[in-house]
Amino acid sequence: MSSPLLSIEDLNISFKTSKGIVKANQGISLEVREEEILGLIGETGCGKTTLGKAILRLLSGKATLEGKIVYRGTDLLTLPEKEMRRFRGKEIGIMLQNPSACLNPVLSAGSQIAEIYRYHEGMGKKEAEKKAGKMLELVGISSSRGCEYPHQFSGGMLQRVMVAIGLALRPGLLIADEPTRGLDTDTKLQISELIAGLVRKENSSMLLITHDLEIAGRLADRIAVMYAGEIVEIGKVAEILSNPKHPYTLDLLHSLPGKGFRTVSGQPPSLVSPPSGCRYHPRCSFRLEACSQVHPALMGFEGERLTRCFLSEKGRINETAAQPFLNAQSALKCEEE
C-alpha cells in the first residue's frame, strides 16, 4: 500500500452566516495516496468544493477550520500564510470551478500561465512565455492562441487553459473541482481523459471533485461519496460501483442514464440544521427506526471499505430485501464501536 500524499484528519469547517452557522464539512477524514486519483462525489451544496478550497486554505475569512490537513508530512492548517504560498500552485495545483470566472478577463491566456513561471521560477519574460506556449500545446491548444483573452475561448478550451495552469508547476497533487461541468458529452470525455492522462504521466495524484459519477468511475482509483458535509462511503471504484453499501451511493448509481435515470428524491438537507440521526434518513428508502435518532459512524469493512450506514453491517443492501430487523439498540452499539 502506497503512503498517503495528503491526509485529512477529522476536518470540520463552518461558516458564520446571517442564517446561522453553516457546518459545511464535518469530521472529514480522507487520504489521497501517491499516484492515485481519488474521486470525491456528491450533489451540489454538499460541501465538496469547500473541502477542495480548504486544502489550499482558499476559503474566506468567515470560515473556521478545525482538524488537520497533512501534505507530505506538513500540516497545512498550522502554516503561516507566507509558508502556505509555497504549497499553492507548486505542490498542490487547483482547478477551481467555472473557468470563465477563474481567469482574469483582462490578461491573455498565455500571460496567465507565463506569470506562474515568472513568479515561482524567476524566469524572464521570453522564457516564461515559451514555456507557457509549451504548456498550452500539452493541453491541446495551439501556442499561437496564447495571446488571446479568456472571452475568446470556448468553454472546453477554457477548461484546457485551466488544466495548463493547474499543472504548470508539476504539482504533486492536482485538485480538480468540477472540471467537466457545463461541457457537452464529447468535450467532457476529452477533458477528463486529458487531465487524467497528464496526471498519470507526471506520476502525480489528483483529487477529482465532481457530481458526475460516470466521470469519477471512469478516471478514479478510489471514490469517496459525500453527503451533507460528511463522507458516507469510501472504497475502490469497482467495489463502489458494483456493490454500493450506502443507500445514497445506490441512489446516485440509479440516477445514471444507463441505470434507470431515477433522480434522488427529495431536497438536499440544510447544512445549518442538518437532520438528526443519519443525515440521509429523510430521503432514504431503507430507513430504519434508529436512523432518525442515532448518527451512524463510518464503519470499516473488508478491504479499505468504509460506510456510514447501519444497514451495511448486514452486507449488501438491495431494494427488495430491506429488512428492518436492526433496532435502535444494536444501532447504538455500532455507534460505540
Partner: peptide
C-alpha cells in the same frame, strides 16, 4: 470578490502581486 482573485491566490501569488497584477487593472476600468 471575484473568483479570479481566489484563483490567482491558488497559484501561490502574494497579495501584492495579486493586487497590482490582477486586481487593479480590472478595478480601474
Amino acid at each position: 470578490g471575484q473568483e479570479y482573485i481566489v484563483a490567482a491566490r491558488a497559484r501561490g501569488f502574494d497579495e501584492r502581486t495579486i493586487l497590482f497584477r490582477h486586481a487593479l487593472k480590472n478595478a480601474f476600468l
